[in-house]
C-alpha cells in the first residue's frame, strides 16, 4: 500500500495515552487547541512544549515514524516562518538579506506562530495515532448525544461513520487493485500531459463507483437480513467508561492550563 496513506494511522499500543477514554482525549485536545492561542511568553510556550513532548514520548510510538508522518507539515511550518519574517516590521533590525531588513519582532513572531502550528498538528495527530477510528466514532456519538433531543440523527451519523471507517481499507485496496489492472492495460497514471492523466482517472473511477454501489447494495441486504431496522430499540455492545487514568489525565491538563495563565505576561 502507498506509504502516504499510513500517515496518522492508528498504531496499536498499550500506553497510558492509548488506554485513555477517547472522550477524555478529544475534550483535552479541543481545549488544547484553544489554550495554545493563549500562550504569549517564552515560559508559557515552554510549558506547552514540555506537555506535548512528554505526551508524545509516553505514547511509545517510534519518534521516527511520527516525524515521517509530519514531513509534509514541515514545509508549511517553514513557509509560515518565512512569511512572518518578511511581513512583520517590529523591533530592531537584526540583519539584512539582500537589502531586505529582518526585524527581531519578525523572528519572535515567526517562531511563535510556527511553534503553535507545530504543537497543534502534533497533538491532533496523537489522537489518531493512539485512538482507533471506531473509538473516535463512539466518542463523537457519546459527546453529541444531547443533540438527540433536537432530533439530530446522532445514531445514523455514527453508523455512517463507522461503516465508512470499516470500508475505507477495503476501498483503498480496491482502488489499488483497479489502478494496477488498468496500468497493466497500458494506462499511465504517472507521466504524460495533464490532459491524459486526467483522462486516465476515468478507467479507475468508473469501476470503483460500480463496485462501491454493489458493495453498498449487498451490505444493505446483509444488514436487513440481520434484523437492522434503525436506531430504535437497539442496544449497544460498546461502552465508554471514564476511569481513574482519565481523571488523572484531565487533572494534569488543568494544572498545565493553570500554569499557562501564571506564565502569561
Amino acid at each position: 500500500m502507498n506509504n502516504a496513506f499510513i500517515v496518522g494511522q492508528y498504531v496499536p499500543g498499550e500506553s497510558m495515552i492509548h488506554r485513555l477514554d477517547p472522550r477524555s482525549k478529544m475534550v483535552i485536545i479541543f481545549l488544547f487547541v484553544i489554550v495554545v492561542f493563549l500562550a504569549n511568553s517564552v515560559w508559557s510556550y515552554g510549558l506547552l512544549t514540555i506537555f506535548t513532548v512528554l505526551t508524545t514520548l509516553s505514547t511509545r510510538i517510534p519518534l521516527s515514524y511520527i516525524a515521517k508522518g509530519l514531513t509534509p507539515v514541515w514545509l508549511l511550518i517553514v513557509f509560515t516562518f518565512i512569511l512572518q519574517l518578511v511581513v512583520t516590521k517590529e523591533g530592531a533590525v537584526l540583519f539584512q538579506i539582500i537589502s531586505y531588513p529582518i526585524y527581531s519582532g519578525g523572528v519572535a513572531q515567526g517562531a511563535a506562530i510556527s511553534l503553535r502550528f507545530f504543537l497543534l498538528i502534533l497533538v491532533t495527530s496523537l489522537l489518531t495515532l493512539t485512538t482507533t477510528p471506531l473509538e473516535i466514532t463512539d466518542a463523537i456519538e457519546s459527546l453529541l448525544h444531547p443533540l438527540k433531543r433536537i432530533k439530530f440523527p446522532v445514531h445514523e451519523l455514527a453508523l455512517m461513520m463507522s461503516i465508512s471507517l470499516r470500508f475505507i481499507p477495503t476501498l483503498m485496496q480496491e482502488t489499488e487493485k483497479i489502478s494496477k489492472a488498468q496500468a497493466s492495460r497500458g494506462v499511465d497514471f504517472k507521466s504524460g500531459p495533464i490532459k491524459n492523466r486526467i483522462q486516465a482517472i476515468i478507467p479507475l473511477l468508473v469501476p470503483l463507483f460500480v463496485s462501491a454501489f454493489k458493495r453498498a447494495e449487498e451490505l444493505a441486504m446483509a444488514m436487513e437480513a440481520r434484523g437492522y431496522q434503525g436506531g430504535d430499540g437497539r442496544t449497544k455492545l460498546r461502552e465508554l467508561r471514564i476511569e481513574g487514568i482519565d481523571y488523572l489525565a484531565i487533572s494534569v491538563f488543568f494544572l498545565i492550563v493553570i500554569g499557562l495563565f501564571l506564565t502569561r505576561v
Binding site: I178, A181, S184, P207
Partner: peptide
C-alpha cells in the same frame, strides 16, 4: 513490457468501465 506481458487479474470483470 506491459504490452508484452498481459495480466488477467483475479475477478478481472472489476476493471470493466
Amino acid at each position: 513490457l506491459r504490452e508484452k506481458v498481459g495480466v488477467v487479474f483475479q475477478y478481472p470483470e472489476h476493471q470493466l468501465f
